[in-house]
Computed example of a mutant assay.
Amino acid sequence: MSRRVSLFLLLFGVWSWVIWITFARNLWASSQSWAPDGSATSFFVVHLLLTIVSFVLGTIIGVLGWRGLRARRRAATPAP
């Protein structure tokens, strides 16, 4: 994997976390998320699942980018 692709994947993973943390905070504070009795609405549950899946995928993509950068760095380092 090229350095450019690895860096893109790593930055995409970080960006994904930033965006979805903001989304999760807004979801928690939304009046649509909670029923009058204090229970979670289906709106909240669906969007929470979407957020969790996005965190997992963002993490996987970021780790792939990080590993790609590390592998290129190791390949560029001469063996003793």
Rank of each mutant, 00 (worst) to 15 (best):
L11D: 05
L50N: 10
R74L: 13
G38R: 01
G62N: 00
R74W: 03
L50C: 05
S2D: 15
G38A: 03
S31M: 06
L49G: 14
L48P: 00
W28R: 14
V63M: 05
V14P: 04
H47M: 05
M1K: 11
W17S: 12
L11A: 15
S42E: 15
L48I: 04
A76Q: 10
G62M: 00
I19M: 13
D37H: 04
L10T: 13
F55P: 03
P36V: 00
W34I: 09
R3S: 12
I21S: 14
R4V: 15
L69S: 07
G58W: 01
S54L: 06
T51E: 02
L27P: 00
S33A: 02
F8A: 15
R67E: 11
S42L: 10
P78T: 08
N26K: 12
S30A: 09
W66F: 09
T77N: 00
L69Y: 07
L48T: 11
L10Y: 08
G13H: 01
A35M: 08
R73F: 08
A40H: 09
A71F: 02
L57Y: 08
S30E: 04
A40T: 12
W17I: 09
L11K: 04
T59M: 10
A35L: 12
T22P: 02
Q32S: 11
W28D: 14
R67I: 04
L64K: 06
V46Y: 02
P78A: 15
P78L: 13
V56T: 00
V63F: 07
I52D: 06
V53M: 10
R70Q: 10
S54D: 09
F44Y: 01
A24S: 15
V46L: 12
A79N: 04
S30R: 02
F55A: 08
L7T: 15
H47I: 01
R25F: 06
S39Q: 12
G62K: 00
V18M: 15
I19W: 10
V18R: 11
M1C: 11
I60V: 15
I19S: 11
T77F: 02
N26M: 13
V45S: 10
A24L: 13
W20A: 04
I21Y: 12
L48V: 06
G13I: 03
R25Y: 06
G13Q: 00
P80V: 11
F8N: 10
L9D: 09
V5C: 09
A75W: 06
T51Q: 01
V18K: 07
I19G: 04
R4W: 10
W20H: 14
H47E: 09
V53W: 06
R67V: 07
L48M: 13
F8V: 08
T22M: 13
L49W: 12
V18T: 08
S31Q: 12
V5R: 15
I60P: 02
L69W: 02
G58V: 04
L64S: 03
G62F: 00
V56W: 00
W28C: 04
M1S: 13
F43I: 06
A24N: 12
R72S: 11
W34N: 02
A79M: 08
L10W: 11
R74Y: 06
I21P: 05
L7W: 14
M1P: 14
F12A: 15
A71C: 02
